[in-house]
């Protein structure tokens, strides 16, 4: 009896009867299909490729298991690329963090009535972030130009150098030139996040610390830094991920040269994949990169969790 009227109600409503859960899956479906097809499938294919030797030119395509990875271990160029990548990452991320922190602290001190100064600072600071990396690489390539670039001229005019330095062609300078460019481009991002973090620190804490006799440095060390730790770690995670994968900045600026002195893992992988067409070995390189990035960010996350537990 009740069952019949139940089905009647269903019929009467006359629309497709889906539970909320079913609607949910339906809504998530397009995203899932797209990501599976365009991202997950290629990722899987890359992992699979990394277990094969594929050299289309010679018609070679065979399963080799972990041989590519073993080959990596003995590949001097791989280790050099690793060193370059880590050097680039460590230098640029720490510089971005320090500089970004400095910017954020300065901007947090801005106080001219309506906050006009801060608005202007935001406008200026967002520009390097918004510029395409490729464009910023070209901008800096021009600044680094040895004969009539602005940098050499300014340094010479200030009496700091004897004259012409070929920044991008000198194996010692080239990687640092790339770091400077990367720092210029991404410091704003770090500064914006840190500034937003600073704004959330309750002002009463500083007042209380001043009453307790803490100086500026003590306030920074005991209040600002601990409270900002989560944001600092998030900046670290984001920036490290990006720095390890760095491609366009260095690729456009130096192309990996001179020699292989600025060849990061991405560039080595790119060359292996698209210049020597070793799909298997190139994929193994890329996977190694992913592992490196994942291990580092896992480390950061553990740090973050420990920090949250300690302060919570």
């Amino acid at each position: 009896m009740t069952d019949r009227s139940f089905t009647e109600i269903k019929k009467r409503s006359g629309t497709i009867h889906l539970s909320e859960r079913a609607w949910g899956y339906l809504f998530a479906c397009p995203a899932f299909i797209l990501v599976s097809l365009i991202a997950l499938a290629p990722i899987n294919a890359a992992l699979w490729l990394s277990l094969r030797q594929q050299l289309p030119i010679f018609g070679i395509d065979e399963f080799v298991g972990a041989r590519n990875y073993l080959q990596l271990l003995g590949d001097e160029r791989f280790w050099a690329a690793c060193r370059t990548t880590l050097y680039f990452t460590a230098l640029s991320v720490s510089a971005e963090l320090l500089l970004g922190f400095g910017f954020a602290l300065l901007l947090n001190r801005l106080s001219d009535g309506a906050g006009r100064g801060l608005r202007w600072a935001h406008v200026m600071i967002i520009l390097p972030w918004a510029i395409p990396t490729v464009v910023s690489a070209q901008i800096w390539a021009w600044l680094y130009q040895p004969d009539f670039g602005l940098l050499n001229y300014l340094l010479y005019a200030a009496g700091m150098t004897g004259g012409r330095i070929d920044w991008l062609a000198d194996p010692d300078w080239a990687i640092h030139a790339a770091v400077v460019m990367d720092v210029w481009k991404t410091t704003p991002f770090a500064a914006l996040l840190l500034l937003a973090g600073l704004k959330t620190v309750p002002q009463e804490l500083y007042a209380a610390a001043r009453v307790d006799g803490a100086g500026t440095w003590e306030q920074f060390r005991r209040i600002t830094l601990p409270l900002l730790m989560p944001v600092v770690l998030i900046v670290l995670v984001f920036r490290t991920m990006d720095a390890i994968r760095v491609f366009d900045a260095v690729f456009v600026l130096t192309g990996g040269g001179p020699g292989n002195s600025t060849e990061t893992l991405s560039i080595y992988a790119y060359k292996t994949l698209f210049q020597t067409l070793q799909f298997g070995y190139g994929s193994a390189l890329a996977t190694a990169m992913f592992v490196l990035a994942a291990v580092l960010s896992l480390l950061y996350l553990l740090l973050l969790r420990r920090h949250v537990q300690e302060s919570g």
Binding site: M1, T2, D3, S5, F6, E8, I9, S13, S19
Partner: peptide, 15 residues
């Protein structure tokens, strides 16, 4: 749950 004797337990809010 029954409304006027008919089971609505599995019905959507709109129904």
């Amino acid at each position: 749950i029954l409304f006027d004797g008919s089971d609505v337990t599995d019905l959507e809010p709109r129904e």
